[in-house]
Design a protein around this nucleic acid. Structure first.
Lengths: 194, 194
DNA sequence: GTCTATATTGTGATAGAC
DNA sequence: GTCTATCACAATATAGAC
């Protein structure tokens, strides 16, 4: 599989455009022509960079996961305590949703997962595993420091938190509300942590 | 807009097939040919019952919401206390997911909402409003009876609970896990509400 | 109500010139 | 790398016979 770090400047713009289209319309909701028009080149030029659609979207998901990992590392550098880290984590989702009510790339693709090419579905799966693993460690740390008092396991708390944030984006969109995932995240944190 | 209660027996089978296809592949992920093959008639016959795709899917969402309201009423008849009602509510989602990891019709359509015909998007919006309204009343009742001790408002607790359940289906699918929304629902009920 | 046939448009993908 | 031209096919949708 191609790696996003080894692609040309134009290919980067193609991935940028495809990322936005996936967030707004899903895998089956956009075409190579849509990408071409956003980038400002013709359809066959998109195929030159990414011969198959599943390749393009797999790279979109791959890069998205990588950037998320960078963001998680950045949070660790900026916040020492578990509750602050979880608040910063929720803010990642809020920032995504704030831009045209965009969905998480892997939230959208996750919903479509059963009708996705394997190469894409496995990238999506990896995104969730990476996030759950990180959240689990943060929650466990918070419990150890008695900053999180819930008696549920770190694993199920991490999963519930992630699901609440992903769900908030889907429901917010479905209700055509401009309210982002922050409130749902806060409700969860406020009730679980204290 | 056509009402689902006034359609012919064959049209009912068409809606049945379309409902499953929406849950598994989304609005943009299935075609009239897919519906035709499931029902066992030809594509133009589907058009005879539902001339436009948006009409068909709008009826799918309309009927889905109606059935949900019936289920909510049934829960009220079977459970008196708020926590029991919320557990039964989560079980509705679990049953949907248990069948081939199907998504909530409006969870799937909610994710796609921005690229949906208005007639469909407004039905989806209504589904969420109906559910949030019901959940809010149940939560408020639970708080009045001191069975739910969280100090957050009934409104935000209702929203967080719904988002957690919808999100659990999306994440469960994205992770290709067979674990349904029940665990997330339980975590929420156990840690957040009490 | 269902069918065959067809119109029309869109879609992923390729060939080959520049 | 980008383009024009084109393919093969799938999509929504309609006309009109039975």
């Amino acid at each position: 599989m191609k790696h996003f770090s080894e692609i040309s400047p134009t290919a980067v713009r193609v991935v940028d455009a495809a990322e936005g289209l996936v967030q707004q319309h899903g895998y089956n909701g956009f075409s190579y022509d849509d990408v071409a028009q956003l980038v400002g080149i013709k359809k066959p030029s998109i195929h030159h960079h990414f011969p198959k659609k599943e390749e393009l979207v797999a790279v979109v998901a791959q890069r998205y996961t990588h950037r998320f990992r960078e963001a998680l590392l950045s949070i660790e550098g900026q916040h020492a305590k578990a509750p602050d880290r979880l608040i910063a984590y929720a803010a990642l989702f809020e920032r995504t949703f704030a831009k045209d009510r965009r969905l998480c790339v892997c939230g959208m693709l996750g919903a479509e997962s059963d009708s996705l090419p394997e190469a894409v579905a496995s990238e999506v799966e990896r995104f969730f595993k990476v996030n759950l693993e990180w959240l689990k460690l943060v929650v466990a740390d918070g419990q150890r420091a008695a900053l999180i008092t819930s008696k549920s396991t770190a694993e199920v708390l991490a999963e519930a938190f992630l699901c609440a944030l992903e769900g908030a984006m889907v429901v917010g969109r479905g209700m055509r509300s401009s309210r982002g995932p922050t409130e749902v995240g806060n409700t969860f944190l406020f009730s679980v942590l204290t």
